Simulated assay, not measured.
Amino acid sequence: MTTRWLTPEEQRAWRAYIAAAHLVEDALDRQLQQEAGMPHLYYSILANLSETDERRLRMTDLAERLKITRSRLTYAVTRLEKDGLVRREECQWDKRGSVAALTDEGMAVLERAAPGHVETVRALLFDHLTPQQVGQLEEIFTGVTRALQGDDPQSAPTDVPWLRRSSPCS
């Protein structure tokens, strides 16, 4: 099998993507640590729970949404639980599973952290793009996401698994 090396243009685009992704993630982590005392992963856990019905989600589904291992999620949820931001509950539909539930205190912390986080995302990314580029960025990453997940290319752009709502233990 012959290796399909990247063209010079593809190599520049790949390296630009990697550099930007690392810089954005580092900046988001710093901002959230300074302003909310939590890393970006913890904020993402709270945000994902806040977007679900009853602010609950089965742990395995949450790990899938966040694209992290269950052990990494368990560690993070244990920390958030100690801080009173999340609580773990037994899954009523499957006794083997557990559910992460956002507490009222967790929701309050998220609501306080969200404005600074959104402003940082805007300053890091969207303030540097034209409206047309924002549309292109969405189209590019929606296409990449679909390809990596094997989704139907004809599905709607919002038809992304981690945006679907389901029962907490389904």
Rank of each mutant, 00 (worst) to 15 (best):
M1A: 15
T3D: 11
T3G: 11
L6A: 12
P8Y: 02
E10N: 06
E10I: 09
E10K: 10
E10Q: 15
Q11V: 13
Q11H: 13
R12P: 00
R12N: 11
A13I: 14
W14R: 13
W14I: 15
A16M: 07
Y17M: 11
A19T: 11
A19G: 06
A20D: 09
A20R: 14
A20N: 07
L23A: 13
E25V: 08
E25W: 04
E25A: 11
E25T: 07
L28K: 02
L28E: 03
D29K: 08
R30K: 08
Q34C: 07
E35H: 04
P39N: 14
H40C: 09
L41W: 01
S44C: 10
S44T: 09
I45S: 01
L46R: 03
N48A: 13
L49T: 02
T52N: 06
T52D: 08
D53T: 14
E54Q: 14
E54I: 09
R55H: 01
R56T: 05
R56W: 06
L57S: 01
L57E: 02
R58N: 00
M59G: 01
M59T: 06
M59D: 04
T60V: 14
T60N: 09
D61K: 00
D61F: 02
A63I: 06
K67N: 14
K67D: 12
I68K: 01
T74R: 05
Y75A: 13
Y75W: 11
A76E: 02
A76T: 00
V77F: 04
T78D: 15
T78E: 15
L80W: 02
D83E: 11
G84H: 01
L85H: 02
V86G: 03
V86E: 02
R88D: 01
R88C: 01
E89A: 07
E90S: 15
E90R: 11
Q92D: 12
W93T: 14
W93L: 15
K95C: 05
K95M: 12
R96I: 06
R96K: 12
R96D: 12
S98W: 07
V99W: 02
A101D: 02
L102K: 06
L102M: 03
T103S: 08
E105L: 07
E105H: 12
E105D: 11
V109G: 07
E111Y: 03
E111T: 08
E111K: 08
R112S: 09
R112Y: 03
A113V: 01
A113S: 08
A114Q: 12
H117F: 04
H117M: 12
H117N: 05
V118R: 10
E119M: 02
V121A: 06
A123G: 06
A123T: 08
L125K: 03
F126G: 00
H128Y: 01
H128P: 00
H128S: 05
H128A: 13
L129K: 04
T130G: 03
T130R: 11
T130K: 10
P131M: 09
P131W: 09
Q132Y: 13
Q136R: 14
I140V: 09
T142M: 14
T142I: 15
T142W: 07
T145Q: 11
A147T: 14
L148T: 10
G150N: 04
D152G: 05
D152F: 04
P153F: 07
Q154T: 15
S155V: 15
S155M: 10
P157A: 04
T158G: 12
D159T: 11
D159G: 03
V160I: 15
V160R: 07
V160A: 09
W162Y: 12
R164S: 02
R165N: 08
R165Y: 01
P168S: 15
P168T: 11
S170K: 07
